[in-house]
Amino acid sequence: MDQTSAITGRQIAAARTLLGISQAELAVSARISIPTLKRMEASDGYATGMINNVAAVRSALETAGILFIDPNGNGPGVRLRDRQP
Rank of each mutant, 00 (worst) to 15 (best):
V54N: 03
I66M: 06
I32R: 02
D82R: 14
G20A: 08
Q84T: 10
S22K: 02
R81V: 08
I51G: 03
S33K: 08
Y46Q: 08
M40D: 05
N72R: 08
G65L: 13
D2V: 12
K38W: 01
D44S: 01
Y46W: 06
L37T: 03
T4E: 15
A64N: 10
A42F: 00
D82V: 12
P35L: 00
T48E: 09
T48D: 09
L19I: 09
P76S: 10
I32P: 05
G49C: 06
P85I: 02
Q84L: 10
Y46S: 06
A42S: 05
T48S: 11
G20R: 07
A14P: 00
T36Y: 04
I7E: 08
L19R: 05
V54E: 07
A47Y: 04
M50I: 11
T63Y: 11
V57N: 11
R39W: 01
R10K: 12
P85H: 02
A42T: 00
G77M: 11
D44P: 00
S29C: 04
Q11P: 10
A42V: 00
M1L: 11
G75S: 07
P35N: 01
P35Q: 00
L61R: 11
R10T: 12
P71G: 13
I66A: 07
P76R: 06
T63E: 13
R83D: 02
V78H: 09
T63G: 06
D82T: 10
T4R: 14
T36L: 05
I69C: 15
L37Y: 02
T63L: 12
R39I: 03
G9K: 01
A42C: 00
I32A: 03
G9H: 03
G49T: 04
L67Q: 15
A64R: 15
L18V: 02
S5V: 14
L26T: 05
Q11S: 08
N53Y: 07
R31Y: 03
V78G: 07
N52R: 09
T48R: 14
M1H: 14
M40Y: 04
T17A: 10
D2Q: 15
T17Y: 02
P35K: 00
T63C: 08
V54Y: 03
D44M: 00
D2H: 15
A56M: 09
G77W: 14
S43L: 00
T4S: 12
D2L: 15
G65I: 08
A24R: 04
R58C: 07
M50E: 15
N72A: 15
I69P: 04
V57F: 11
N52A: 13
V78W: 08
N52Q: 11
Q3E: 14
R79Q: 11
A27S: 04
T48A: 07
A27I: 01
Q3S: 14
I32N: 01
S33C: 00
